[in-house]
Design a protein around this nucleic acid. Structure first.
Lengths: 153, 153
DNA sequence: GTGTATGCAAACAATTTGCACGGAC
DNA sequence: GTCCGTGCAAATTGTTTGCATACAC
């Protein structure tokens, strides 16, 4: 799907969602959505705040937190916790569910998919008789072939 | 393994660890270890603080955080993030590595093991040429057979 | 006796809340 | 015109830090 189409589709989805839930279609909400979908990377609230402040549109942190809740609720973004006490997010429309490899030295994140995780979820569903809503799988790794192997204490 | 043996073993392990790293064997450190191993549940720092305050031994939060770092370092406890911006911990000696099912309605945690997760880790190691240090897999579920199905908005 | 560990309180960082004003409806 | 959503600042929560005292060594 083209970048342009994605932007257009997510606006449509968000708009319908707001309508359905009797929430107002404010310019701030759409500016936040657009900023998030202008970049596929993971982000935290402060990064989003700074990017928007530096660019065209500036919103308060309170509005960012508020809007992020709405975007989570309509599945346009996903929330992650990669071990720090801080939420990170990513746009989720147009990319399939995936998991994350975290380089413990740099914090860098690589995405991967493995079909076996779906099998595990199926087993959970059958064994416990529950609805599996979602999951998070993070693999923490170290790249051994690095020129500087950090300090060794 | 008996509860008593576990208590005794972990004290021995912690003691050796402190010795090896030239850290002092303070009564606070052993009181914290004992409190953690007196109960197999997950806990957060505040719960631990309150439990110890109510009981025999009272330590400051600063000491709790400090000691928890040591216990993580010698693998006597594990740290988890279950979606909240708060660390939770669990005693890890004498139980094997496992993953977690989280009931999104109650926050209740069930542990499970699935050997396929190890296969996924092996694949990651081979495919990316990395050392896999650890992982965290959380499955968020809802129990459909509940008398009160919460509010439905 | 030395110097690390402790307790306390202040500092911090991420997030939430309260409130007055502005704009979507 | 209503009243929800916004921006701001203050409040809260989880965690860290600074410093004087206490105690493990």
């Amino acid at each position: 799907m083209e970048e342009k189409d994605i932007q257009s589709n997510v606006k449509q989805i968000f708009s319908s969602y707001l309508e359905k839930h009797s929430h107002r279609k404010t310019p701030e909400r759409f500016a936040i959505l657009e900023e998030i979908y202008s970049n596929p990377d993971h982000f935290d609230v402060d990064e989003l705040y700074t990017k928007m402040k530096d660019k065209k549109y500036r919103v308060s942190r309170a509005t960012l937190y508020n809007t992020i809740e709405l975007l989570l609720d309509c599945n346009l973004i996903r929330r992650h916790q990669f071990g720090k006490n801080m939420s990170q997010f990513e746009a989720s429309y147009g990319n399939k569910q995936h998991d994350h490899i975290i380089d413990v030295d740099t914090g860098k994140i690589v995405e991967f998919c493995d079909p076996r995780i779906q099998l595990i979820k199926n087993t959970i569903k059958e064994h416990f008789g529950v609805d599996v809503l979602h999951h998070s799988l993070n693999i923490f790794v170290r790249f051994p072939n690095k020129e500087n192997s950090e300090n060794s204490n």
